[in-house]
Amino acid sequence: MIRFREVSVKKDGQAILTEIDLSLSERRIGIIGRNGSGKSTFARLFNGLETPTNGSVTLNGQGGSKALRRHVGFVFQNPDNQIVYPIVHEDLEFGLKNLGLGKDEMRARIDTVLRRFQLEHLRDRLTHQLSGGEKQMIALAGVLVMRPRLIVLDEPTTLLDLWNKRRFMAAIHELEQQIVLVSHDLDLLDGFDRVLHIDGGQVVADGLPDPVIAGYTAGAQC
């Protein structure tokens, strides 16, 4: 369970998020909101990429950005920004090296993830030559090998075509972990357990997908 206790974030004197107080234990959680609503900052609080100006974020009672980073994975919108190494297997090893794992353990974890998503043929490929869909799958694999308890995805399908989007989301739905998905694509939130609507740095609606999404789209009519 991830707990936000009266969290506020200010940047250059401007309030980005104010007084967020939440406990999230559902398995599939969606976050929606307009551009500039603060949802991206909110998403980055989950794994300590942003730190609260006031308040605290804890995962199962543990706080601090180190612990959050260790247990919360993050998938970015653009996989090009996330892939660090020129060769696929090097990139997958990167996070594991940071955890200080041995060679055999690294190999075993990488094999498991690649096999699970039928990506074994990409192991020795150059990362910059992968297609957009393959890149995002590798970015996800790079997060999964670290065996996080929670995975935050910040609009991960925006740059994907319809087929790759479906493939990616199928992979996401298969995962055992708790998922937090930030998305402008409201269809992706089908079957989710809980959706938060962020606006002006606050949670303005919180509940089951249907009513929250209905309220959000009603606000966009003009």
């Binding site: 980055r44 794994n47 990429l49 980073r69 260790r70 994975g73 993050f74 970015f76 653009n78 920004n81 996330q82 660090v84 990167f94 996070g95 940071n98 955890l99 790079g142 997060v143 670290m146």
Partner: peptide, 11 residues
């Protein structure tokens, strides 16, 4: 963003 992604992977 790459720097963030690197930090997100515990480096």
């Amino acid at each position: 963003e790459t720097a963030q992604a690197i930090q997100a992977r515990s480096f």
